[in-house]
Every structure is written in structure tokens, then in C-alpha cells.
Design a binder for these strands. Sequence first.
DNA 1: ATATAATATATAAGTTGGTTGTATATTGCA
DNA 2: TGCAATATACAACCAACTTATATATTATAT
Lengths: 114, 114
Amino acid sequence: MIPTDLIKGSIKTIVLKLLKEEGPMHGYAITRKVEELTEGKIKLTYGALYPILHKLEKDGSLVTASENFNNRIRIYYALTPKGHTVVADKIKELNEFIESLQRIVDTKPGLSHA
Amino acid sequence: MIPTDLIKGSIKTIVLKLLKEEGPMHGYAITRKVEELTEGKIKLTYGALYPILHKLEKDGSLVTASENFNNRIRIYYALTPKGHTVVADKIKELNEFIESLQRIVDTKPGLSHA
DNA sequence: ATATAATATATAAGTTGGTTGTATATTGCA
DNA sequence: TGCAATATACAACCAACTTATATATTATAT
């Protein structure tokens, strides 16, 4: 399990990216998918996930549609056109972040003080 | 510039990793090096950096040595044996994190709902 | 002369993005 | 009968930052 502090800031981007690739999803399915993709290394908590989804809905990045499945309410979240713009930006940011981290972890013992 | 929320949790690991590869460094030099390695995409703030360094010193991961350079105090931070253990763990975590993020951003449109 | 940028460290106050705990409700399995 | 899985929601709390501020020297530009 990757510690929560490391993951914190990227949850929103992860959620948006999944909705982009998988199409409309409900909250529970999002947590399952993240666990599946990361082999259990990233687990979203509902206390983090739902506030993020609600916020994205409020700001117009997502729209919701309720569905009844086996007497359980499922609320599907789908990207709006605005959401598609937002996710594109966020993924770009995340890629730059990943690249920067890699440059740092790939740094080999400095010749600078050899 | 990568937004701060994304970087937040990884600052401690970045600092430790630099000290591992570059040897003892002072705070200001750490911020320079991070900017250099990431081509200005990651900039550490002193309000974040110094508290982290002080904390790592307190917990025995770092030791300090003061030096006078051009009438400016420089405080060099160096990894202790404990610090070397800590940084190894942190880098492992960071690599898992990077790998997980890549799996998510590399996800292509799902065949799952084709 | 004078101001500004770069060098160098430090800390208090405030924000935010989460965690943890709790509540509710159905289905399926042991 | 009870536990695990499915499904959403929110209030209280906390840690890790940002922002602002303070201090002090050296180098560069006007």
C-alpha cells in the first residue's frame, strides 16, 4: 500500500482519467477500478472520493444519473464537455509530475563532488 | 510549474534522495538542485523545506554541520545510517507510486464496455 | 549612492485535502 | 443469524503544506 500522503493530490486526476477512459461510472466502481489497475497499491477512501465527485459536479465537470440496480441506488458520474477539458489539463500536469519524479529518482551519484 | 497539491507528499522523499546522491547539502542548494533537475517544474518553498529538514534531524535521519561561507551561515545536512535506511524505503514507495500513476495514465479506452 | 536580486535560514498563521468514524440500507453467503 | 460485499453520505479531525514575515550579507545594476 502506497502511503496516503503521496497519493493525496492526485486523486482528482485519477478519478477524471478513469471517467474519460471507462465512460460513466459510479463511486464504488471507481474505487474497484483503481485497486485493480494498481494491484491494490492505491485504495481510495469514500471520505475522499464522494466529496471530490460532488465538487466536480458542482463546478460543472461532471453530471450525474441515478440508476436502480438490485434495489441499490447507483449514481453514475459522466464527464461534461468542460470535464473533458479539465481532464486533459490534469493529465498533462500529472505526466509532467511523473516525469519530474523520474528525473529525481533516476539521479545517479553526483560526479559533481567526485 | 506543477501544482503544489500534486507535489506535497513527495517533498520529503525528494530531499532525502538528493542528500543520498549528492552528499551533504544546505537548504538553499537543495531548492536549486530540485529546480535544476526538474527544469523549473518543481520549486520547493522554504516554509516547507526547513521544517522538513528540522524534523528529519530530530528523528535522527540527518545530522547537521554549520559552515561559514562569505559571512553567510550554511547548514549542511547529511544522512545518518538511519537516514540511509529511511531513504531506501521512501524511494521504494515513490517508485511504486510512479508505477501506479503510469498504469492509470496509460490506460486506453476500455474494451470492457465496448 | 541606492535599490534590487541572489544568497541563506527561520517561524507563525492559515488553508486544504485528505483520514477516521459514523450512519443507512440491500444482497448474498456461511 | 451474522458477516462480507455493495452503495452512498457527511461531520470531526489532522498533517502537510502555503503565505507572509523577519533577518542579514554580497553582488549587480542604475
